[in-house]
Design a protein around this nucleic acid. Sequence first.
DNA 1: TATATTACCAACCAACCGGTCGGTTAAACC
DNA 2: GGTTTAACCGACCGGTTGGTTGGTAATATA
Lengths: 204, 204
Amino acid sequence: MDDKETRVRILDAAAHLFGERGKDAVSTTDIAREAEANKAMIFYYFGSKEDLYQAAIRKWFTDMMGNIRDAVEGVESGLPMIEAFVRAHTAYLIRRPAMAKLIVRELLAYDFSPPPAMSEIMPAFNGIRLKLVESLRAAVNRGEVRDVDPLQTTVNIISMDVFVFVGKPIVKIIEPGIDIDRFVEERVEHIIDLLMNGLRKRSE
Amino acid sequence: MDDKETRVRILDAAAHLFGERGKDAVSTTDIAREAEANKAMIFYYFGSKEDLYQAAIRKWFTDMMGNIRDAVEGVESGLPMIEAFVRAHTAYLIRRPAMAKLIVRELLAYDFSPPPAMSEIMPAFNGIRLKLVESLRAAVNRGEVRDVDPLQTTVNIISMDVFVFVGKPIVKIIEPGIDIDRFVEERVEHIIDLLMNGLRKRSE
DNA sequence: TATATTACCAACCAACCGGTCGGTTAAACC
DNA sequence: GGTTTAACCGACCGGTTGGTTGGTAATATA
């Protein structure tokens, strides 16, 4: 791989492979091979495969949330906040598509409760949640945004940001010859276009 | 389980478990137990675990597409078509949340090409693809819909329909006390609300 | 220089995996 | 009544899995 420390090489390889193939489709031998480390080092540094998996999730979920927080800091609430969030969120995921898959896979494993690793980390980023949902509510109250449900709208936004990384094959089904990387890059403008036109209150 | 035939019981148990936990996290022993069948029956009827998995995907993807086709048949193109599609799609997924997960998991396994089982089936439902994308293009041309990219818009629609079944835990993170089943049921109206307001062309 | 400590590894193990096999049962067919 | 056939099953097999062990080499500490 490269000259990073063994622990880091293992964590990187794990995040990559877990994201690409899923926790149960990847063996500790696979991870050791990609990390160019001895298999025993996984248990030396992380204790168990499950703990390594949790460590990978914690690392990248924290990294993503931190990135978004920095990007939306200081942006005024309401529609500008939504635009900044979408741009930061999609930009982050485009740069690390395996991380998008890793997070989606972890979400899939839980139905009625948040994944433990994520609910541990979330309180540290409470600001983002409040900024998105609450600033949407405030924008509705002051008449800038139509009378929409802030939580449903937030889920709409996150859906459109994240889903392409799952749905690339669908796009290929609908339009086989497409340049998928370019399509994914262009998405952000179309998401913002739909949101701005669908949310902004018109002068009547 | 019940008094259905062994082959059907195996296929149902497989679809349920594969969707809930993922292909590699489910053993043939697990499937046999849930289907109340002997493990050897899986190989007797389906040949291999992989073939059973493919059979489950084919069955439910065909079922879903058939359901949607019936629901949008005869609906006029443009915005009414979009509304009918969203209603049929979300209604189907709400009734079978494990199928939503199964399909998402299969999509996750492929990056730049459609899953074979799906691209085999898709030609039979070419009408839906054309109706959604092409009728959107037509609606743009006749000025009913704003000048949006039909494919990007289609992906936006599918994103919002499907993602809740992945993102339920996110909703629980944002608002822990929520009644998630009700939230999911109510989503369809908010999706349609955003789409209608975001797509319809205003008289200027 | 003696002694911990840290990083590392080849070889190993019990449990479980997907898959097979030889044989049984019971209804269908002649 | 005898035979074919489809449905079924307990017991088994080679290979792989997550995880362990006993030990080595190098560096830091005293």
